[in-house]
Simulated scan of single mutants.
Amino acid sequence: MKKIKTLMLLCLTVLLFNCNADDDQAQENNNPSAFTLTEGVATTDGITFNWTASLDADNQDVTYAIYLNGDLIIEDLNTLSYIIEYNLFVDGENTILVVASDGVGGTSEQQIVVNLLS
Rank of each mutant, 00 (worst) to 15 (best):
G70F: 08
A26M: 13
N20R: 04
E39M: 13
A57D: 09
Y64D: 03
L37A: 00
Q60Y: 13
A26Y: 13
D76Q: 06
D23L: 07
D23A: 07
I74E: 03
E28M: 01
D24M: 11
N87I: 08
N30E: 12
D76Y: 09
I66W: 15
N59R: 10
G40E: 01
N59W: 03
T38R: 11
N18G: 15
Q27F: 02
I74L: 01
L72M: 12
E75N: 12
S33M: 05
D71E: 12
I84P: 12
F17N: 00
F35I: 03
T38W: 09
N87Q: 09
T63A: 05
A57H: 07
D58K: 02
A42Y: 07
T43W: 08
A53K: 10
S33K: 03
T79W: 04
N31M: 04
N18D: 09
N30A: 09
T52N: 12
L72K: 14
L72N: 13
E39I: 14
V62T: 11
Y86F: 02
E75I: 03
F49A: 00
N50W: 07
D58A: 02
I84S: 10
C19A: 10
N69V: 01
V62I: 11
L77A: 00
W51G: 06
T48V: 15
F35N: 01
N30P: 10
N29S: 15
D45C: 10
A65S: 14
G70D: 01
T52P: 14
T63D: 08
N59D: 08
Y64C: 01
L77C: 05
N59C: 08
A34F: 15
L80D: 07
L37G: 03
L88Q: 08
A42Q: 10
E28V: 03
T43V: 04
I47D: 04
N59A: 11
A21E: 12
T79P: 08
F89M: 02
G46V: 05
Q25N: 15
D45S: 13
I47A: 03
D23V: 04
N31S: 12
N31D: 12
D23Q: 07
D24P: 14
Y82L: 06
L68N: 04
L77H: 05
